[in-house]
């Protein structure tokens, strides 16, 4: 009922340009409670501000928690705006030919996963739709688990895939930059076998791959060091391989200077990932039914941003009011 109210013709014009609400199990019931609390909380913070009192830290914590929790429960989906930086990656993969090989390096750990895993999944799905061959690798010891998660996530949708022919996983090798330095010219020197110890030569898809440039496209998804910067320095620059990247939001600004010379595209944080998901959904409508993880994150993120902006505005109002009062009393 509540959900119906939310989506009713009376309310939907109010909300529809802003966000659409997807069904989320019990979520909507909770979400209304959360929204009311959110508005009440913001109002209270505003009231405190006008009164010229500081808001206690714990109230801010609570509000932040409520905001994000409410948004997660409601399942807000915001319109995503596409950018050329992400578009370039999508187009590069779209224009590759069947059978081309793509190297996907997942250099992050569970803390980076909320932002980066959706990119890895979306890019993998896109490659497999285009019938490209994917080789997974990682420079992080914790990346092995991430690769396994990606493969389990996409495997059910592509039951006909054969390991070694359509995709393979060479796993992790210790050595950080040293690994990259070597694979730029000699892939097998560092990766003589795949993750389970099968000799690379016995995997049909890896014949003809001697060095990184033998992959038609490299997508490096990473959240720190070693990561995209090292890929650019040790692989792209010396060997001229074609690369796109996916970066955590924190490190994205530092990597901007490499676009478009050293990498032809970059997905920055969940925003970039959700753009990719949107492009994927448009190109392959069947993905409309799947969970778009990054797009789900974008809603709560934006609401949290709104809240943060409100906080900053309140903080400044209270500051100016305090100054005025001080001036009046002096």
């Amino acid at each position: 009922m509540i959900q119906a109210l939310f989506l009713s013709p009376v309310f939907s014009p109010l909300f529809s340009p802003l966000f659409s609400v997807v069904s989320h199990g019990l979520g909507p019931v909770f979400s209304w409670i959360f929204w009311i609390l959110f508005v009440a909380g913001v109002g209270w913070v505003f009231w405190r501000t006008i009164k010229g009192r500081e808001v206690e830290r714990r109230v801010i914590f609570l509000m932040m928690g409520l905001t994000v929790a409410g948004a997660v429960l409601t399942g807000i989906v915001l319109p995503v705006q596409e950018t050329v930086v992400v578009r370039n990656i999508f187009d590069t993969i779209e224009n590759l030919e069947e059978g081309d090989k793509v190297l996907l390096s997942l250099d992050y750990d569970p803390s980076g996963a909320p932002e980066l895993q959706p990119m890895a999944i979306a890019v993998s799905q896109h490659c497999l739709e285009k019938k490209l061959k994917i080789c997974y690798m990682t420079l992080w010891g914790t990346g092995g688990a991430m690769i396994a998660d990606v493969i389990t996530a996409i495997r059910p949708d592509f039951p006909e895939l054969v390991y070694g022919e359509d995709y393979c996983n060479v796993g992790y090798r210790a050595g950080n930059e040293a690994v990259l330095k070597v694979i730029a010219t000699d892939f097998r020197k560092t990766f003589p076998t795949d993750v389970s110890g099968i000799v690379l030569d016995s995997l049909p898809m890896m014949t003809g791959v001697t060095a990184c440039p033998d992959f038609s496209y490299i997508v490096a998804i990473g959240s720190g060091r070693p990561g995209i910067k090292e890929w650019v320095e040790y692989v792209v620059e010396p060997s001229g391989a074609l690369m796109g990247s996916g970066a955590a939001a924190v490190s994205a600004p530092q990597l901007y200077p490499y676009y478009p010379q050293q990498m032809n595209g970059m997905m920055g944080g969940s925003k970039g990932a959700s753009e990719y998901e949107k492009m994927l959904r448009r190109g392959y409508p069947k993905y409309g039914e799947f969970r778009a993880q990054a797009t789900e994150i974008m809603g709560p993120q934006t609401v949290a941003h709104v809240f943060l902006m409100l906080l900053i505005i309140f903080a400044n109002i209270s500051f100016f009011l305090a100054k005025k009062r001080k001036g009046a009393s002096a």
Binding site: R57, I60, F61, M64, A304, I312, A315
Partner: peptide, 26 residues
């Protein structure tokens, strides 16, 4: 790992309180 990610996610709260305190046109 859950403890690890949760510690990390505390940052979302701290970023809000830091912004409230520091971003004033003093």
């Amino acid at each position: 790992i859950p403890i690890y990610s949760t510690m990390f996610s505390l940052l979302a709260f701290f970023i809000a309180s830091a912004a409230y305190r520091a971003f004033r046109a003093r």
